[in-house]
């Protein structure tokens, strides 16, 4: 039983980072109604920018964090301009295919600049292990969980207390309503993209700083984790993204402990499969989607 609780605790921590990745996907999907397949590789660019700063200039955590964030945001702006802003109209598939091409391009570019298999990334050294009775919590997990919680709280404030947040929610709800209300749709879409990239950059930094080493596979890994968490939680639901991320983290942690590394991957995809079959609207998507559809029908 202790093992189960310990795994749950670890899973919630790593799941909070998955939740952030899913949140990034959800923000973009909510506003654009399109999937950004290059989301993970954009984060990869940021992480390697941080790693470069660390290895060449022995930069500390804060400069590495800022470089990661900046790299992810710049790479995302590049993706937005090419795969989303340039492809207008009802062309979700074209955007998705185009962002998939940019995924390959970004990953290949990073692999050429950083040809080694793995690179070192600074870690949260010197922080003590936390003991909670019979349970332990790795300090980097605590940092991960608290950062994710703070970020989600901050995002909530942006969404509910600022004009940009109102514009974003309007765009997500009804694009035409945003246009006829005098919202600069293209600008809000770009800012949302960059916001999602910043959230993804934070998630990427936390994950890399927890592992202490990175490889070029991290882009695909981040895309997969974020997509799976988003689908499990419910496509287009921010609450669902967080719930999906936490659920994925916990299931993975339990599977890793009881079934081993290969069992973990099998369980992850089994979870996705089960979620798609039994709960296609996701863990949190049902109520939100239903309410929104009903409201739309009345209008």
């Amino acid at each position: 039983m202790i093992d189960f609780v310990q795994n749950t605790l670890d899973g919630l921590a790593i799941g909070s980072a998955y939740g952030l990745l899913a949140l990034g996907f959800t923000l973009i999907f909510g506003v654009m109604r399109r999937l950004n397949m290059a989301f993970g590789p954009s984060i990869l660019v940021g992480i390697f920018a941080g790693a470069w700063l660390h290895s060449h200039w022995s930069a500390g955590m804060i400069p590495v964090f800022l470089a990661t964030l900046a790299g992810a945001v710049i790479a995302s702006a590049y993706v937005e301009r090419l795969s989303f802003a340039a492809i207008r109209g009802d062309a979700a598939l074209a955007s998705m295919a185009s962002s998939f091409a940019l995924w390959m391009q970004l990953e290949e570019a990073v692999a050429r600049v950083f040809p080694q298999r793995t690179y070192a990334f600074p870690t949260f050294e010197g922080l003590p292990m936390l003991e909670l009775g019979p349970l332990f919590l790795r300090p980097e997990y605590l940092v991960m969980f608290l950062t994710a919680a703070a970020l989600v709280a901050g995002l909530q404030v942006i969404l509910t207390r600022t004009l940009f947040g109102l514009h974003l929610r309007t765009l997500s709800d009804n694009r035409e309503a945003a246009r006829v209300s005098g919202v600069n749709v293209a600008q809000v879409a770009l800012l949302t993209f960059l916001l999602a990239a910043a959230i993804g950059g934070v998630a990427g930094f936390l994950i890399a700083a927890t592992d202490g080493q990175i490889s070029t596979k991290l882009g695909m890994w981040a895309t997969m984790k974020g997509l799976i968490a988003m689908v499990i939680g419910g496509l287009g639901s921010m609450r669902g993204a967080l719930i999906g991320g936490l659920a994925l983290g916990v299931v993975e942690a339990q599977a890793q402990w009881y079934l081993g590394a290969s069992g973990r991957e099998i369980t992850t995809f089994a979870l996705l499969f089960v979620a798609l079959i039994l709960l296609p609207v996701g863990l949190a998507g049902g109520a939100e989607t239903g309410a929104r559809a009903e409201a739309g029908r009345r209008l």
């Binding site: 109102l166 929610r169 309007t170 309503a177 209300s181 309410a291 739309g296």
Partner: peptide, 24 residues
């Protein structure tokens, strides 16, 4: 300002938020 055909409101926004939206 425009009052479009079919009203075109964002259904999940509240009345207060819709008014805020219009003000810019």
């Amino acid at each position: 300002a425009l009052v479009p055909e079919g009203r075109v409101l964002a259904p999940s926004l509240t009345v207060a938020e819709t008014l805020r939206l219009g003000a810019g």
